[in-house]
Structure formats: C-alpha cells, structure tokens
Design a protein around this nucleic acid. Structure first.
Lengths: 350, 350
DNA sequence: TTTAGCACTCGGCACCCGAGAGTGCCAAAC
DNA sequence: GTTTGGCACTCTCGGGTGCCGAGTGCTAAA
C-alpha cells in the first residue's frame, strides 16, 4: 500500500497525538500543526478510514488509529526518538547499579525497563545449550557425597546426595573418572540408555549410584525451563484502556502466568527488536495490547530477552530507543565484568 | 467486652451473610434465620452499632461489620468450618503433586492455596540460621577454582572463582584446611575482621584469595533475603471491594513489591495461624484488607510461611481450615520424602 | 419484652435536556 | 482541481429531576 506523503504526515500526527492522550483526535486540533484547514484534514481522514487505518469510536468523535495503522507507523513513519538528558542519566544510573549474577540481572533488567517505560515489563534468559566440562564428587560421610558439575558457560551446579546404603571405598573416585571421561562436552541428546548402561558397568555400581548421577547429569544439561520474570504489572492501571477491571484482570492474569506460563514474543535470531501489535500477537490475551521486545547477547552465550507490554497506542519510538540503549549498555557492562572480575559470574547459589 | 448470647448470634449471622454477599445486611433478611422479628433485630443492631461492631454505609442501608467485629468473630464466634468432600479431594490431589525442592515447593504451596481460597496468596521460607559444616576447594585451572560449602541444613552452595593471577601450588589445599578449621560451625556474627586477618596470615595469601573466600563465607552464612512468592494476585478482581481500579492497584503494587518488598504478617513462633484484620495490619496498604497466614515446619529446620490476602470480609473460618489441612499435609509429605529419598533436598542449582 | 405499623430517609436508576465536539457535504474561493 | 468556510446533523457526556425500594427509628399495642 502506497500512501501519499501528506496522508502519511496526517497519520503520523494522529498517532503521535493519540499515543499521548488516548482520546480520539479531531480534525480541528490538527489544523494548526499541519498548516491545513480542518476540512482538508477531514477529507484525508475519511480516506484513511476507508483504507482501514483509522476508525471512529462513534459518529462525531475524532478518529483513532487501528492496529494496522500502528504497523505502518512502526515500519515507515516512526521518527527516531531522542532520549532526554534526564532519561539518559536515569538509564546510566540504572546500568551502573550492581549486577551480580544472571538470575538477579534478569529481574533487574525487567524492573529497570518497567520503571523507565512505565509499562509492565518481562525479562527472561533465552535457552542456552551448555555442556558439562568438569565433574567432581566429594565424599561427605559413609552414605553421602556432594556432586559438583561445572558447565561450559562457567556456571557451577552442586547437589548433596545421600544413598540408602554405604558407598564402597573408591567407588566415588571411579565414578568421577568415568563421568569426566564419558559425559563431558556432550549435549543432552547424546546421553542415551546405552551410555548409561555401559557407565554402570564401568563403575561397578552396587548401590544405585548410576541412576542418581544420570539424573544429575540430565538435570544439569537440560536448562530449567527459561525463567520469566514480570515486573511492574500494576502499571497498566496508568492507561485508561485498562480502566475496565475485566480487561486489566485478563492481562494481569496472563502475565502472572498462574494458570499457564505466558508465551510472549521474542525477536527472531538476528533481529534486535520485535514489535507485535494487537492481533499480531499469538496470545489471545494480548490481542488488544502491544509488545516491544529486544534481545541482548550476554557474554556467556546466553541471550537476555527484555520486553514491555502495554496498550496498542504505546509510544513505540520512545520504547524502542530506551530498550536499545539499555541492552547496548548491558552488553558493554557485561563484557567489562567478564574481563575484569570473574568472581560471581559462575555463581549458582541462589 | 461481654456480649450477650443473642447479640453474638446476630453478629455472627450478619458477618456470615456479609462475607458471602458483600452487601449491607438488613434486619428483615435475618428474621427468618434467627426466628426473631425484624424490629427486634433492629434494636439489637443499633446497640451493636453503638458498640462499634456494626456500621451503616448510609442511613437506610443495612449494617456491615466493622474490623473490630471481625476480630470478635475470629476470636469468639467463628464456627469450625468443615471441608467439603470435594475440597478435601482437591487438597489431597494438590498435596500428592510432586514436590521436588524447597524453592519450587514455596511457589507451589502459594499457588495451591491461592487456587483453593480464590484469593491472592503469598509463600516464603522463614529465615533459617545455618552454619557451614564443610568446605572444599576444587582447582579448575591455573587461575580458577570451585568453592563448595555445605550448610548445616545439608544445602550445598558452590561458586566458580577466577583470580587475576595464577594460584601458587598448594595454596588451595592450605586454604581449604584453614577454612574447615576456622569457619565451620560458626554463625556469621563470629566472622570478624580479626579472624579474617589471622586467616590471611595462616594461608600465606599472596593472590588476594582471602578477601574472595571471606565474601563467599559471608554470602553462604547470611541467607539471601527470604524469597517471597505471590500467586494469583489477579484474583482480587473477584471481590467487589477491589472493583475500584485505584484500590486494586494499590494492593497489587504492594504485593508485587516492585518498589519495596512487601512486609507481610507471619505467625509468632508457636502460634500456627495468625489473622490480622484491617487496621491491625502494619502495612498501610493492607489497612482495609485481611490477612491469614500459617507457619509450617519443614523437615530441614526451615519454616514455610503461607498466607492469603483478601477483603476484610473474607471467609476466615474456611480459610483457616484449609490452611491448616494443607500445612499438616505438607509436613507429613515432607517428612516422608526426607526419610525415603534424600536426593534433591540439598539441591541449590536453581 | 417482643411485635406490628407507619412515617421518614436515602441511594440507585431511568429519563430528559442542553452543551460541546466533531463530522459530512456543499458551494464558493483560490 | 484543490482548498476552504459554512452549516446542518449526530452523538457523547454531564447535570438535574423524579420515582422506587430497601431499610431504619419510633411508637403503641400485644
């Protein structure tokens, strides 16, 4: 669809105004800004309406943009948004805040973004494929030992194991040798029944050690379902479109994920920002909301996803800018941290 | 305050009814149930009102109970609530669900309780005082090692550490010996500057190992701030008192803890259920809500807190019964699990 | 002491009406 | 041909009015 320049200007003006006010915008209020008489603008508006880009809540109200209009806006009309000095300062302050480990970084990024955009935000670590690079079994007492595994991404996982029967002398040592020989640097698909059986034989297992170690290996290799944190969901109350308790409820329930974890959009590999508007969203509950989400590579091979959810009329330009600034800052800080002080990045104690 | 029996009956009837309907109850609607004429009931009501137990939203509306009335109700009038067959079945089903580790158990308990009571629920592990019973330092490469500590409650904490400079031969061995000698079985208050200095000397630290190990010890001893999970907060929309978007917002924001973590009531040691009603709540945000919370001893010395938040007119009797049933069930299951299969209780990998 | 009756009060709801904002269309102006 | 001013029309929103019903307080009778 080719849209003449003047129509574009008008559409952009309507969207910019509606994003701020959430109220239908009429022709008269635009005439000053666009240097056109209301009548002219009305004419263009009614054409935009027949193209499905504007709609009227009722006769004799102004026009509001449709979801399609936002799509056009995001793809073609959006002006690059400049961060104000204050906003940059706020972002820098947030970035300088201590970031200690991945878990809390996820939640932290979500909180910062939510606060910055005044919208509900979600953050998650994208799944990562790790292998185990090192095993260690530490004897604790006759029946107990600590299993420690170091992941290829430098995370450490450990677990206390107690068996019903005493562990024969030397078994732990042998098991640890076999684990390091057979189970390091492989992905989880390669941990097969066959491998497990041969391991059991190699160890000479008489106390049921193999089954437990196998579980440990598999748990360690298969990342726990990507944890998702949602921050600031109460901020939707700032937007009149969620004044209706039912609408607010539906979105909040969805984000809280009490029944089923919410499936939120994520940028395709490569794309750095993904915007889905209204009906473009897969989830029924997001069909009248907009989502902006970005992906940010962390040093250790993990990707961080951060996004916001809000009314379709949200300030896409501003949000995109803020998200980009934040993720680029995070990436920088993260790489610095990796270089200068590695202590803490492998932490898994919380 | 001594209340005659008939007044008690009337108060109870009013509360029971109001809990269900959330609408002011009038004298006429009670006359059948209480075998008294409306006029009589009116007389009693007006006395209850002057005692501060009832109030009228406006002249010519029925009466509603005050927060004080709920206090009286909970302390003296509440009848033991019987769980329906269906409810017991639901609870048993929930309890039989797999409970794998403490972290997820906390969230799980919250979800179950929220679903069962149809109210927002919160769950947390009560702080525990642990000491470290065992240290192990595992060399990884020239500059890196894994620090492993086992807590007195059988949890294992581990961390990968990388130093800027290579670690001299034998230093790890020595450090581990000193740690085991000086830092096991002591509480965090006893980790003093003095102790740290003498440790540094004992190890002969030339690569800044001591500072990092000290940090590790302190982190391990001082439990991370008790994690709090809130489930089903969107359920407050089921209650007309939170229809007002502002009220809902205030409570939701508080529970989400985006600004500051919510301080929620917890039973005193010993008491198994604590109920705080309206103004009894310390938090400003809960002043027009009620909270019922219970404490449940887990096998490993930890306590689990589970509670619900709702309108002051909530069904205290039913909720108390459900909470008690659930916690007793949890305690049982937990102890079984500890006896039969210890694998996983020491997990700290998530 | 309880009950029936009665007058009174007040919130909620339906209804109406006028003001205001915005549109669509048409004819005149550029 | 495009733009503009004018005008009639439509529709929402807010305030005002009047009725209805629920519930009370009081009083006098049982």
């Amino acid at each position: 669809m080719k849209i003449p320049d003047r129509k574009k200007e008008i559409l952009r003006a309507i969207i910019d105004r509606y994003v701020g006010s959430a109220e239908p915008v009429g022709s008269k209020s635009l005439s000053a800004e666009l240097q056109l008489s209301p009548a002219t603008i009305r004419g263009e508006m009614s054409e935009l309406e027949s193209q499905g880009l504007l709609e009227q809540p009722h006769t004799s109200a102004g026009r509001i943009p449709t979801a399609r209009a936002y799509r056009v806006y995001v793809d073609e009309l959006m002006r690059r948004h400049e961060l104000s000095l204050e906003e940059t300062a706020q972002l820098n302050r947030a970035l300088r805040g201590r970031i200690e480990e991945l878990d809390s970084l996820i939640a932290y990024a979500g909180r910062v973004v939510s606060q910055l955009t005044n919208l509900p935000a979600y953050a998650a670590a994208a799944p990562r494929a790790a292998t185990i690079s090192r095993f260690e079994l530490i004897s604790v007492d006759a029946r107990g030992f600590i299993a420690v595994a170091m992941r290829s991404n430098d995370e450490v996982v450990s677990k206390l194991v107690r068996l019903p029967n005493p562990i024969p002398d030397g078994l732990l040592l042998k098991a640890s040798a076999v684990l390091n020989a057979s189970f390091t640097n492989i992905t989880d698909e390669r941990v097969t029944e066959l491998l497990l059986n041969s391991t059991a034989r190699a160890i000479g297992d008489t106390v049921g050690l193999t089954a437990i170690l196998a579980q440990f290996v598999i748990e360690t290799l298969t990342e726990p379902p990507t944890e998702l944190t949602v921050s600031g969901s109460a901020r939707i109350f700032d937007y009149p479109e969620y004044r209706d308790a039912d609408k607010a409820r539906r979105l909040l329930e969805y984000l809280a994920g009490d029944s089923s974890p919410p499936t939120l959009p994520a940028p395709d590999d490569g794309a750095d920002v993904k915007i889905t508007i209204g009906p473009e969203n897969l989830a029924e509950e997001l069909r009248d909301s907009g989502v902006v989400v970005t992906r940010c590579a962390m040093g250790d091979g993990t990707d961080l996803l951060v996004g916001v959810v809000g009314p379709t009329r949200m300030n896409y330009a501003g949000i995109v800018t803020k998200l980009k600034y934040l993720t680029s800052g995070l990436a920088t800080i993260n790489s610095e941290q990796l270089t200068i002080n590695n202590f803490g990045t492998g932490d898994d104690s919380t």
